[in-house]
Simulated scan of single mutants.
Amino acid sequence: MPQTVFAPWDDPAEKPLIQFKGVTKRFGDFTAIDNIDLDIYAREFFALLGPSGCGKTTLMRMLAGFETPTEGKILLSGQDIGPVPPNQRAVNMMFQSYALFPHLTIWDNIAFGLRREGRDKAAIEARVEEMLKLTRLAKFAKRKPHQISGGQRQRVALARSLAKAPKLLLLDEPLGALDRKLREETQFELMDIQEKTGTTFVIVTHDQEEAMTVASRVAVMDEGKLMQVSTPDAIYEAPSSVYVADFIGDVNIIEGKAHQTGTKLQIDWAEGQPALSATTTKNFDLGQTCYMAIRPEKIAISADRPSGANVLQGEILDIAYLGNISTYHVKLPTGHVIKAQQANTRRISRREFTWEDKVWISWTDTAAVVLAQ
């Protein structure tokens, strides 16, 4: 039986769980959020991604109820949540600092919110045990936060946030304090827990790898605006602008002038250099400025001249060896520096190429994305 793809955003019959409708937030003269429309669906793991100061945390704080929109509405399950105080929303927030109570055991930390709601003892016990099992913390139940590791504290904060079964869980840079390896492990744990509980997660992060790993969809933000909202693969392979292409992953951007015939595009980009070619479904005017975006892993590097569409010669300026891949910075006669990547699939005693070697770089006419801005 074919597996159904989780894509409620493509289903016209599906109603969003969260709707931002013309939401603007100003602090004095400063516009932090600028007229945003955004739908987030139930059971999504949604990422708000962007540099510091882009407005992603403000967006999250408005969902939590710590800020109110200057203009526009935020709906949760069709209800305007503007007038609803934070403690009465079906929303919980997990803070970057975890904010655990140091004097309480792990068990009591998780039970805290349930006790405040006045739930009966048996219900609290059952729910806390369920949360301990879900986050694999049962054997640490009697310990205090200072007696467990950073990764375990992170899971306690998650268990406490999920204990009240919110419709929506907000995660503010939740893995920022963890080292790289633990962060990667925890990302998969988060995804696993999100899938098991079916809770909608909205994560704020400036770490593009994290957003691309955990999220069903990513909203890339800049200066209070949404630059692109799509699935991680679409954002990586089909960015809507130079900003998005440049923000997500490594990319080479070559500026030039367009000459289009149907889906074939020739780009004049440097005096005395052959035109570059690409295929595109977009329409460009004759001589219009355009930008060719090519990911380094889509560029081949060779000692001999290859045949094909886009073939350029240059000299190796720099090499970054990252274990699984090597990135070569190739300087062209025009002064452009192009990054090309090669997977290190075999153990090698010496590199194929070294500094100052003359090499050829090439890519197919379907490898690049051509952007208007």
Rank of each mutant, 00 (worst) to 15 (best):
N344I: 12
P166V: 00
T68E: 12
T345M: 13
V220A: 13
A258G: 02
R89T: 04
D192R: 00
E117N: 05
G323T: 15
L317A: 15
R115V: 00
F45G: 01
I124N: 01
D222H: 11
I74H: 00
T354G: 14
D365I: 07
F112H: 05
K144P: 04
V229C: 08
L59I: 08
Y291T: 03
L170V: 02
E255D: 07
G314M: 06
N283W: 14
F6N: 06
E356L: 13
I301V: 11
I235D: 10
Q3W: 10
E129T: 02
I40L: 06
Y291H: 03
A234V: 11
G78Y: 06
Q341H: 08
Q154T: 02
V337W: 15
A123L: 14
Q260G: 01
V218K: 03
D37W: 02
G82E: 01
M1F: 06
A42C: 08
A340V: 06
F188I: 07
L59F: 07
D357I: 09
K181M: 07
P85A: 15
G335L: 06
Y41E: 14
S230M: 08
T327H: 13
H103R: 06
T200Y: 00
V220D: 13
F95A: 08
R61P: 06
Q152D: 11
R119D: 10
L332N: 15
G198F: 03
R217I: 05
E189R: 04
Q79Y: 05
W355K: 10
I254Y: 08
A245W: 07
T354L: 10
V359K: 04
T279F: 14
K21F: 04
L63D: 03
P232L: 02
F30Q: 02
Q228F: 14
A163L: 05
P296K: 07
Q147D: 08
W9R: 06
R350H: 12
T135C: 15
I193A: 04
K25M: 04
V214I: 00
I36N: 00
S230Y: 12
T70Y: 11
D222T: 09
K15V: 15
D357Q: 04
G53L: 04
P296E: 11
R305M: 13
F140G: 14
D268I: 10
L158S: 01
L114S: 03
E184D: 07
R351F: 12
I325G: 15
